[in-house]
Design a protein around this nucleic acid. Structure first.
Lengths: 197, 197
DNA sequence: CGAGTGATTGACTTAGATCAATGACCGTGG
DNA sequence: CCACGGTCATTGATCTAAGTCAATCACTCG
């Protein structure tokens, strides 16, 4: 997820850093895109707020992720980007990137691959949201996000954040995790969860 | 959604047609991608089946849509593609497309735009799935998919299909539509729904 | 004209949302 | 250094809306 080595050095050099405090918006829905952001450190959420005031978390970017790739081809942002922790982003201007694509087919293809990966991610998320049972949804999350050992999942933020990511109320998630831990299905560690299968 | 005029004529000419009966699979999860499909007529669903046997509809392609763009950059399909009606698809081989990208930056960019649009679509779907109330979910669907007049939505298939698309049981959807019609919020026509706002 | 499927409605169950309360933890400022 | 405000973590009680099971009628396709 974090390979954006596809950026040609020339473009990479042109990046401009910007610092965000927790809770601060990187951009808001409707604004017109200035370029491509890369998250250097921290974490940023893409969020859409529906009519009833409910927040839908579309994506949670971690260090190394790019943000708003799709907006390169759109005339306005279609969601809000909010830093959940103090963060640093790097901005690459739209013209610089487009020019690089004109010049270097490899860069284009690498970027396509990034977009493709994002699509697959979104589909996985969509699949997850189709799971009604809270427990099964958590199981799905754990198996999809298990680390190298296939057993340990590092929680990127708070459990509450995770709940929003999973589309569950935080109470439901706490309960589910407790139950799973009580039944020995998982083990809860500091900032991590381990499947004990 | 249906502009795939981005395909260079040379590639376009190399397309091979294939005919599918309703219910037939175009490809299955795990198989290795042969190229890019364009749906000429009919409709095809991208579906993933989770552990509990539940089906998640990831995307419903209509005439003109491309299928499995993301798989161009992947070594295997990550979902099933099933025709819901008799359909005709056209296959463009992977090497031909990649070659076109090498040659023609415009084609690359057009394809990126297609991917970007798909990403935005998926995000909208994700937003929709975050809406818990069946009625609000239907409202969201109607406003997002309203035609040129902003009031009429053409139903691509059966209501039951729509239910699967929306992630609702068909009973719940029937009921919700009835209620909305009874309260005068919508008007149900043959294969269409009109908002009466 | 029958089989199969879609459309529709009823009755019941249940799991998750919601409201609520409490303890733990963290950083901050006096 | 410690008290305090804020947020996270956790658990209880209740409610409700969507899922599920079930039955019926309407259509369409051979």
């Amino acid at each position: 997820m974090s390979q954006q080595d596809w950026l040609p050095p020339a473009v990479r050099a042109s990046g401009v850093e910007r610092r965000l405090k927790a809770g601060q918006a990187l951009f808001r829905m409707g604004q017109s895109p200035v370029g491509l952001y890369e998250l250097v450190s921290g974490s940023v959420r893409l969020v859409r707020v529906d009519s009833s005031g409910r927040e839908a978390v579309l994506f949670t970017a971690g260090a190394g992720d790019t943000i708003a790739e799709a907006s390169l081809f759109s005339s306005s942002y279609h969601c809000d980007a909010i830093a959940t922790t103090n963060s640093v982003v790097r901005l690459y201007s739209k013209p610089a990137i487009i020019a690089a694509f004109e010049r270097d087919p490899k860069a284009s293809q690498a970027f396509m691959a990034v977009l493709a990966r994002r699509i697959m991610n979104l589909r996985t998320r969509l699949e997850q949201r189709n799971i009604h049972s809270a427990r099964d949804r958590v199981r799905h999350f754990l198996t999809v996000n298990a680390g190298a050992d296939g057993r340990t999942v590092v929680l990127p933020g708070t459990v509450k954040d995770l709940a929003a990511d999973l589309g569950l109320s935080h109470e439901a998630l706490y309960r589910t995790l407790s139950e799973m831990a009580a039944e020995g299905e998982i083990e809860r560690l500091k900032g991590r969860i381990r499947l004990t299968s």
